[in-house]
Simulated assay, not measured.
Amino acid sequence: MKTIILIPPSEGKADGGKNKPLKSVSGITADLIKAINEAEPKKLYGLKAKALENAIAVNKEVLESKTMPAIERYTGVVYDAIDYQTLKHKSDFDEKVLIVSGLFGLVRPTDLIPNYRLKIDKLKAAKLWLTSNSEQLKDKFIIDLLPQAHKKAVKYDHGIEVEFVLKKAGKKMPAGHQGKHIKGRFVRWLIESNVTDQTRFSEFTEDGYTWTGDTFLKEI
């Protein structure tokens, strides 16, 4: 059974690109682009002033702007921690990792995409993608590193959800922003160590996290 690692996109994205624009799209992506154009911008983006103007401009040009591989388009803490350019086994990463995008569904690291703005909890994107995404994950073993909003866009029969949790004075709490970094490091480790299921998760002890059998825990 093939292993697939699910990760979220980043809200921050690199500008520009060297590859041809998409020009046209179909299906759910086309429907969402239409919905974006018809939506009330402030409600859709939750942004103000220059940031709002930038988001509107980016989506207005989504089919005409240059594209780049998704792994280069997405920036942020998880992707910085993965540090794709220094991976020894990039082909394994490209084959095993899928990014759950609000606008494009399941995206491979090498897929060429434009800059865009759409959170997966807007315009019912997660619900729209659920059937299509889940069909693509059939008969796969899933290592799920998705936030709650993105989990609503997938279903799978075989797999495990991986959470990173902090424990302080006996109380557990989500790892939060720090958790994004360790998730990226974990994805990198999965690829470089050719780990395909949870049987070897206990070998990952970076930054003081320990696998308890159902979660990674760090006492602080």
Results as ranks from 00 to 15, higher is better:
166 L>I: 15
21 P>G: 11
220 I>L: 15
11 E>K: 12
22 L>S: 09
71 I>E: 09
108 R>G: 06
218 K>M: 12
10 S>R: 01
121 D>N: 15
39 A>I: 08
50 K>M: 09
95 E>C: 05
15 D>P: 00
190 L>I: 03
144 D>P: 01
52 L>T: 05
49 A>I: 10
115 N>L: 03
12 G>C: 06
30 A>F: 09
25 V>W: 07
198 Q>W: 03
138 K>S: 14
80 D>C: 08
139 D>L: 11
38 E>M: 07
85 Q>S: 15
142 I>S: 00
108 R>Q: 07
21 P>D: 14
208 G>P: 02
85 Q>L: 14
184 G>Q: 04
182 I>R: 07
109 P>F: 05
88 K>M: 09
108 R>I: 03
7 I>S: 01
77 V>G: 01
138 K>M: 12
190 L>C: 01
205 T>K: 15
82 I>V: 14
99 I>H: 04
188 R>T: 01
158 H>R: 12
118 L>P: 06
91 S>N: 10
146 L>C: 06
99 I>Y: 04
124 K>G: 12
49 A>E: 13
113 I>Q: 07
215 T>K: 09
33 I>N: 05
15 D>N: 03
24 S>L: 13
163 E>A: 08
53 E>R: 13
148 Q>F: 08
38 E>S: 13
174 P>K: 12
167 K>V: 15
26 S>A: 13
41 P>G: 01
91 S>F: 07
83 D>K: 14
146 L>S: 01
180 K>A: 04
201 F>A: 00
139 D>W: 05
102 G>N: 02
90 K>F: 05
59 N>M: 08
172 K>S: 10
204 F>H: 00
191 I>K: 06
48 K>I: 14
17 G>N: 09
28 I>S: 14
14 A>T: 13
218 K>R: 15
75 T>E: 12
201 F>Y: 04
177 H>C: 06
164 F>H: 06
189 W>T: 07
183 K>S: 03
58 V>M: 11
143 I>S: 00
79 Y>K: 06
110 T>N: 05
111 D>E: 06
34 K>Y: 12
120 I>G: 00
86 T>R: 14
100 V>H: 02
108 R>K: 09
154 V>W: 02
57 A>G: 09
